[in-house]
Design a protein around this nucleic acid. Sequence first.
DNA 1: GTTATATTTAACCAAATGGTTAAGTATAGA
DNA 2: TCTATACTTAACCATTTGGTTAAATATAAC
Lengths: 129, 129
Amino acid sequence: MVKYRAETLDYTFAALADPTRRAILERLSTGDSSVTALAAPFDVSLPAISKQLRVLERAGLLVQEKDGRVRRCRLEAKPMKEAVDWIAQYQRFWEDKLESLASYLEGTLAEENGPQDGPEQENSEGGQP
Amino acid sequence: MVKYRAETLDYTFAALADPTRRAILERLSTGDSSVTALAAPFDVSLPAISKQLRVLERAGLLVQEKDGRVRRCRLEAKPMKEAVDWIAQYQRFWEDKLESLASYLEGTLAEENGPQDGPEQENSEGGQP
DNA sequence: GTTATATTTAACCAAATGGTTAAGTATAGA
DNA sequence: TCTATACTTAACCATTTGGTTAAATATAAC
């Protein structure tokens, strides 16, 4: 029973289930970052962030490139596409009967991605308890 | 005073991170089901499934209605919409520059009905802005 | 070479997760 | 009423998770 595909989804959804990791991804969506810079906004130790980065790496959502003694962290969004693929099969259960997920997202994205910058979510919880 | 719970996304993504729970959701997408019927395909005990259902309930992805001694389980997909909303802010990182997530999903959903395996589009990984 | 910086690894801990079996509750049906 | 059915709850266990501090590694900078 080959389930490698499902495992990928396990890792992706698990990685997205933590507010600190989501905040890290949001930060990375504005540009690459070193580990130390990534960790700065959070009130946890550096090893704690290092572990979170490993979870993101396992999910394929983050890539680290060594550059001297600095690790350059880069967002890799492809696994999110697979996650959306999976969720998409349920769109008919929440969508307006007249509106496809496609057009729903178009509307959403038109508002949220208008200015090229800051994808601000109404509940960006920042990751601190 | 009920604050908006930032952990909604936590619960949703966490619920989706388990293959058994995703399978339960897929099953429910074909129609409501009793707990016993839901549990049948899985090689685990009924209490184990009962726990999984509680996780899905916590995420708001499942609703149980008591009907005699049977619990009728129903899919509730709204939290998935919020999950997609969150992921959607990253679409520009995986999409083909010419194609919006909206049109991507339209194409995907048109042909996708079995095991999800999206169009084998090589990751286009645009640079960081 | 010595020291400072960037980051990981190791060892540990508490809490959460996912499973088990056994027992309890509620209802349907004989 | 008595019994079978459909679950849930309780108690327990192993593993995973997310955090800690201390030590190790690698490289940059004096």
